[in-house]
């Protein structure tokens, strides 16, 4: 049984924003509900008002325009996983979406919820950080756009304000020749919380060298982290097994520094090597081959 609250189902963005601006007392935005409803059931949250975004159909769309991908906050994990244009360079998003929960959670849970929850283990966050995504936050009479990395404050905290609604995530389209991957390590193969995850984007140049590398790790810090040392190391070089080892070591060293002495550190310091290795090979099979 959930504790009672007032429920609102605005039929337009304006109405939603005006409710957010005017409703008194604690309020929560309801998107997919897969995290909010259990929190209500456990009594961890007891908002006076729940504002449902159900009717805001425009937030359910994925659009590609002017070189940027716009993903509405209500886009579900299933939608992301099934979105055909994400089969190519952007497949890290589809792969990450497919690793979330099980089919039921994926039909319901949304990208907006995943971002605003800001769990260190949020599956979509490393891909979005690697994609250098921004988030749009709207309020009555205004909006702001923030880089995701800046928006996330770590351990479930973000810089969203009480009256704001996150409406979309936006990122630049990757070049056509780019390849990407997402790898998640959980205790089991579905309905698992990520223990370590990694998103990798590699942009090859004309001669087969790596022109650009972007790596983002999840669940090793209060929020997803990029690995600049490993990215720099990969840049301008050709993927092969020895470069892989260098990169994996660079990732592991960065993680060791991030983890400090938390209880999971001894495990994660080592295990991240396996995750990084798999992610890099998935993004560029040449890493795995003896050339």
């Amino acid at each position: 049984m959930l504790q009672p609250f007032n429920y609102h189902q605005p039929s337009s963005m304006e109405e939603a924003l005006s409710l957010m601006a005017t409703l008194p007392g604690p309020k929560k935005v309801l998107a997919g509900g897969t995290d909010l409803v259990p929190a209500l059931r456990r009594g961890e949250l007891s908002p006076a008002h729940v504002v449902s975004l159900k009717q805001l159909a425009e937030m359910r769309e994925i659009k590609i325009k002017e070189g940027r991908v716009h993903i509405g906050a209500l886009v579900t994990f299933s939608q992301l996983a099934e979105f055909r244009p994400f089969r190519g360079p952007h497949n890290l998003l589809a792969e990450a979406a497919l690793q979330v929960g099980g089919p039921q959670i994926r039909s319901q849970g949304t990208i907006g919820g995943n971002i605003v929850n800001a769990s260190p283990a949020g599956d979509l966050l490393p891909p979005l950080v690697a994609l250098e995504a921004e988030v749009r936050l709207c309020r009555a009479g205004g909006e702001r756009v923030l880089p995701l990395d800046e928006f996330l404050k770590g351990l479930g905290r973000t810089c969203i304000e009480q009256e704001e609604i996150l409406t979309e995530a936006v990122f630049p389209v990757l070049p056509g020749q780019a390849a990407s991957s997402f790898v998640k390590l959980g205790r089991r193969n579905s309905l698992a919380i990520s223990r370590i995850s990694m998103a990798a984007i590699l942009v090859p140049g004309a001669t087969g060298i790596i022109e650009e590398a972007r790596l983002a790790l999840g669940a090793v810090a209060p929020k997803p982290v990029r690995v600049p040392r490993a990215e720099a190391l990969l840049k301008g070089r050709r993927p092969d097994p020895s470069l892989l080892e260098e990169a994996v070591t660079a990732v592991a060293e960065t993680v060791a520094a991030t983890l400090g002495d938390r209880p999971s550190a001894p495990y994660k310091k080592v295990a991240v090597r396996g995750v990084a290795r798999e992610a890099l090979i998935k993004a560029a099979p040449q890493f795995g081959c003896k050339l």
């Binding site: 509900g33 897969t34 409803v37 449902s52 299933s78 929960g101 039921q104 959670i105 039909s107 319901q108």
Partner: peptide, 24 residues
């Protein structure tokens, strides 16, 4: 809390956990 699937129903053809869906 959406961890077992025993309450699975189809909502517009998609499987969901009925325990995670507010009725409205």
């Amino acid at each position: 809390e959406g961890e077992c699937g025993a309450c699975t129903v189809l909502l517009n053809g998609r499987p969901v956990n009925a325990c995670l869906v507010l009725a409205p």
